[in-house]
């Protein structure tokens, strides 16, 4: 699989990203590549800079140095909404539903604006997305009243509704029960099989191992190691990092 993905085209790339907040270097010279159709897992201890990395890719923050390249185009200075329209969909670690809108309307916002499509032309896409994320039965429910699992599903549904080529999933399994995690894994595997390129930040290691092609471990904003999922998780670097040793 690693050999395959190396040969295929790179869809998203960060080059030497650096970002500091105050005196803290949160992201330090981070370079990673995501290949077309690849599912990449990102692990790292709390505060390693994982969510900041997503914020840099999706345009919430601008990097101090380095570039973000999407489909051979430098998008470092593109606004958030334009990155979304280009095809980068993301979910938030803490779900941010449009609380007083229905689930269907939530998804519709993304299906119209992220795709630059008309409202009626987006209904089909919404229904497909709701089916895929198993939210059809809740379509008319107020999004603010959803359970955590369904909020997480809604995050995924909104990201998907925009027809992205890259999906950024930020701890989408966090806080769910074991059974719910299993369900979510199935959904994400389906998406992977459909050919979406995925970057998934997750602390629940078995969920990653069951889904992704490659794992990229970071610590203190720097790359530790990347490669085959089980090899990375068993590597000395990751073990040292999680078990309290000094990162390399």
């Amino acid at each position: 699989m690693t050999a395959d993905t190396k040969r295929s085209t790179v869809v998203l790339e960060t080059e030497g990203l650096k970002k500091s907040f105050g005196g803290v270097q949160v992201i330090d010279d981070l370079t990673l590549q995501l290949h077309e159709g690849e599912a990449l897992g990102i692990v790292g201890p709390n505060g390693a800079g994982k969510t900041t990395l997503f914020n840099l890719i999706s345009g919430v923050h601008r990097p101090d140095e380095g570039r973000v390249v999407f489909k051979d185009r430098d998008i470092t200075h593109l606004s958030r909404q334009n990155r979304c329209r280009q095809g980068i969909g993301r979910t938030f670690q803490i779900p941010k539903p449009f609380a007083d809108m229905s689930v269907f309307e939530n998804v519709l916002v993304c299906a119209t604006y992220a795709r630059g499509a008309g409202e009626r032309a987006s209904y089909q896409r919404c229904v497909e997305t709701l089916e895929l994320t198993r939210l059809t039965g809740l379509a008319n429910k107020q999004a603010g009243k959803l359970t955590l699992l369904n909020r997480k599903r809604l995050e995924l549904a909104r990201a998907l509704a925009g027809d992205p080529s890259v999906l950024l999933l930020d701890e989408i399994a966090g806080g769910l029960t074991e059974v719910e995690v299993e369900e979510l894994i199935l959904t994400i595997r389906e998406l992977h099989a459909e050919g979406y390129s995925i970057i998934w930040i997750e602390h629940i290691v078995h969920a990653l191992l069951a889904t992704v092609d490659r794992i990229y471990a970071i610590s203190f904003g720097r790359k530790l190691i990347d490669g085959d999922p089980s090899e990375v998780m068993c590597s000395d670097e990751v073990q040292a990092c999680y078990m309290g040793g000094t990162p390399i």
């Binding site: 979304c84 539903p97 449009f98 809108m101």
Partner: peptide, 14 residues
Amino acid sequence: TAIRDNDLAAQSSG
């Protein structure tokens, strides 16, 4: 309506 409910999420939705 989306902006009313969540400004940031609206931006991230395009």
